[in-house]
Amino acid sequence: MKDSLLWGVVIAVFALALFVLERLFPLRRRKRPLAGRLLVNLSFAAVAFVTVALTVRPAADMTLGWASQGGFGLARLPFMSPVIQPLMAFLLMDLTFYWWHRANHRIALLWRFHNVHHIDPDLDVSTAFRFHFGELAFSSAFRVFQIALIGPSLWVCLLYETVFQAGTLFHHSNLCLPLQAERLLVCGIVTPQMHGIHHSQVPQETNSNYAAGFSFWDRLHRTLDLNVPQDAIDIGVAGYAQKKDNHLGAALLLPFRRKRDYWSKSDGSVPSRDGARAQKTRLAS
């Protein structure tokens, strides 16, 4: 219990530090007042905490106990040395999260819920807490499959969870890092600029940069896009860009209502990146 509390405090302090830093060194200009967004996103966080406590965590713990006792999992294959097994488990955890994130964009039912995360009109560390309880409930089923398939040890699972949560806060933040630091970091991990492109209203940009931890999964799957400057990105989902869409009640009910055309603006146009794209960015260079 004390360990869980300490873990929560560390994550909360890290989130608060990012919140302060992104105010001092913003990457993108804000479109909407901060107070209203914070109220909505922190409300989602409260509901998410309860959902995770009731579904995701018990499902993960139960499966982890079963996998540990049975010695089952891809990371526990007999020919793997004890040194390789933890590394393989950690990498497989991150790879399967890449696939899960991609599934949330490709499968219509999952996207209905994941869309709630994407319609936030600004992207900052508070967006990292904005996940619909329905999406988190689905993720409990994914966790069961993931842990049963991989068979990570308890300490590897806890380590990955810590790194994953810290990485999620970091790459959702609106923190502007020096360009050289971004270029260096993005070779290995997901950065604020890389994930900012994923939250663009341009469909082909939203459907890129799915990685949660290591950026090389996007390189391997050819879904990496670094050639978009942050000042050219309009955060959100075009079909749900009205202010009323981001009221708490509307956002909670969104997955259960008749869907709109996600990618079309109110005037019927679809956001796209014009020919000036080649002159933009230089993250990939």
Rank of each mutant, 00 (worst) to 15 (best):
G275L: 09
L177F: 12
R37N: 08
I11Q: 13
N41W: 05
F145K: 07
L110A: 04
W7N: 14
T281H: 03
A75T: 12
P121D: 11
P78T: 10
L77Q: 08
L179H: 03
I233A: 05
H118G: 05
D122V: 14
V163F: 15
A148H: 03
L64D: 09
F170L: 15
H198D: 04
R258K: 11
F113W: 08
R257T: 15
C176N: 10
M62R: 01
G73I: 13
A17C: 14
S272C: 02
A59H: 03
H117Y: 07
V83W: 11
S215W: 00
E205V: 00
R282I: 01
V116M: 06
V144P: 01
W111A: 02
L220M: 12
G239T: 12
V40S: 11
D274T: 01
G8A: 12
E135A: 07
D3E: 12
V163Q: 10
V270N: 00
H247D: 14
G196R: 13
N227C: 01
T51P: 03
M88Q: 06
L253N: 06
M1H: 07
L179T: 06
P33H: 11
V270C: 01
L158F: 12
F131D: 06
L149D: 12
H221N: 06
V52H: 10
K259V: 02
A103F: 08
G268F: 01
H101Y: 13
S68P: 00
G275I: 05
F19I: 04
V125G: 11
T191L: 06
F72T: 13
L136P: 12
D120W: 12
P121G: 05
I84F: 09
V190E: 11
F138W: 04
T63S: 13
T162S: 15
C157A: 15
Q165W: 14
R273V: 10
H195V: 12
G134W: 03
G268D: 07
G249D: 12
P152Y: 04
D234P: 00
Y240C: 07
Q69S: 07
A108G: 03
L109Y: 11
F25T: 07
Q204G: 04
Q165G: 10
N209E: 03
N115L: 12
W7K: 14
V10Y: 13
R112Q: 04
N41S: 09
A60L: 15
P271Q: 01
S272F: 11
G188H: 05
K244C: 04
P229D: 09
V47R: 00
A276L: 15
G167L: 08
L5W: 07
R143Q: 07
E205M: 00
L184Y: 01
R257A: 14
A35N: 00
L253S: 10
L224R: 02
S68L: 07
I147A: 09
L64R: 11
L42P: 02
D245C: 11
H247V: 13
H114R: 08
D61Y: 02
I84E: 09
A141G: 15
D124Q: 15
N41E: 13
A278H: 13
L110R: 05
I11S: 11
H101G: 13
P86C: 03
A35V: 03
G151P: 04
I197Q: 13
G70K: 09
S200A: 09
A284Q: 08
A45G: 10
D120T: 11
W99H: 14
H101W: 10
A60S: 15
Q69W: 03
S215I: 00
F142N: 02
G151Y: 08
